[in-house]
Amino acid sequence: MINMIAALGRSALASVMEMGRSGIFLYHSLVALPAPRTNFPLLIRQLYSVGVQSMMIIIVSGLFIGMVISLQGYTILVDYGSEQAVGQMVALSLVRELSPVVTALLFAGRAGSALTAEIGLMKATEQLAGMEMIGVDPLRRIVAPRFWAGFISLPLLSMIFSVVGVWGGMLVGVEWLGIYEGSFWANMQASVDFGEDVLNGIIKAIVFGFVVTWIAVFQGYDCTPTSEGISKATTRTVVYSSLAVLGLDFLLTALMFGDL
């Protein structure tokens, strides 16, 4: 009985400590940013592996999600004779919700887990410790570029996702199902507001980019340096960032659109 209570307390303390460590870690890696001359090529390299290589999966899934919303929306709306509203439905659901959230989830699976595994393996093979020994700050050299790369990439990926999704929706709605193209676009443009919808979607993507990369990089840096520890850390990255993204999405939606 006493042991159970003690274990409960230990796990609570451990999670508070983990939060504290991640906060300190965040502070250090953000402060470690300057020295643009050496860091810029590193950032480019990370942008390539985090952003550019995620583009394909984002484009393909954006296309299919747009197509599927269009198809589903059409089958429902055609009963009310207002199938022109498909454009508005596709654009609003993509721009407000789906593109930031789905992009962040895919990003956590595609890039976040890779970041965690990479940094975790560096820790397990004592590369990070070696860097510290020769006087190179691993936070500045390894973590900061990866962090910024994720932070920059996710909003861009999310915008690409929206555009490709709308295009896919148009492909199905206009080319295949025969909605009149003019009213498809006009309805969309009349209902999507730049400040209200597009900008809020981008703000969401920025927040998600920050959170997902933070979790990924921290889990890698903080993992137990064994092969089992790395695999656990990678799993944790995907689970934590998915939960964080979905929870934050509700919070942000309530703040932005809920008239609180």
């Binding site: 721009v95 929206s162 676009w185 981008i202």
Partner: peptide, 12 residues
Amino acid sequence: VALGVLIVNISG
């Protein structure tokens, strides 16, 4: 470019 399309084409 995606941002541009979002501004001009989608939000009109």
